[in-house]
Design a protein around this nucleic acid. Structure first.
Lengths: 112, 112
DNA sequence: TTCTTGATCAACCTTTCGGTTGATTACTAC
DNA sequence: GTAGTAATCAACCGAAAGGTTGATCAAGAA
């Protein structure tokens, strides 16, 4: 599955909202309908519905159809893509630090 | 280091912009000044400066002082926090799927 | 058919974001 | 001191985000 800049924009933006993160946390324990997802919030159903659409466009969730209900499912594959992006640069940066550590240790060993 | 909802908001929002992600990619290879970071972009220096402030408020980068320059450093620790948040729910969801897989395999084994 | 439920669509409003330009601060070099 | 360089501050602007309410659609139940 190809994964462009636009997808990263949408996915990280989706995670930047506490309501949407709470929805993701809920979905990690299993699928749920819009009404079920809305229950813990003071927000209107329409507001929650919008949040779910944002998550869906970011491919963080998918929806099936079940009579008049439309259960929402978390898509863990996309979460993997996100951690992949972050880890790439985290590891590069940490390697830099490790090399610096090595240099400093080497210097103190020579001077001590 | 304590890490609240507000910090997650800011950090994920910071990552939701392609210019800022490119800045992070650059910083993963080592520190850089604002002018150096601005070089690859058509954007004004002030625009880049704003982006860096967003990254700084999200604790994704820190700044030191070096004469009139203010080099920007990537903070890998925060990237770790973010992957930590994502992985928590990714793993929960994957466990769900694995259990479902096991059930389906068990059923087909019995029926086959 | 009519009624109820689950959910979306559409219009609107306020706040925030991402960008610009112009002025200003902080430091170095002469 | 003055000039030059690195970067921020401040005000402004258009576009998008996050929320609301009211109307509508789709499916099952009576």
């Amino acid at each position: 599955m190809s994964f462009g800049e636009q997808d990263l924009n949408r996915a990280f933006l989706a995670l930047a909202d506490p309501t949407r993160r709470q929805i993701i946390a809920r979905l990690s324990t299993g699928p749920a309908t819009v009404n079920e997802l809305a229950e813990p919030f003071k927000m209107s159903i329409q507001g929650i519905s919008k949040h779910i659409q944002v998550l869906e466009q970011a491919h963080l969730v998918t929806r099936t159809r079940e009579a008049q209900r439309r259960p929402v499912h978390l898509n863990p594959a996309l979460l993997t893509e996100l951690t992949g992006w972050i880890d790439k640069y985290r590891l590069l940066a940490e390697q830099k630090y490790n090399r610096l550590d090595a240099v400093l240790k080497d210097r103190s060993a020579h001077s001590g």
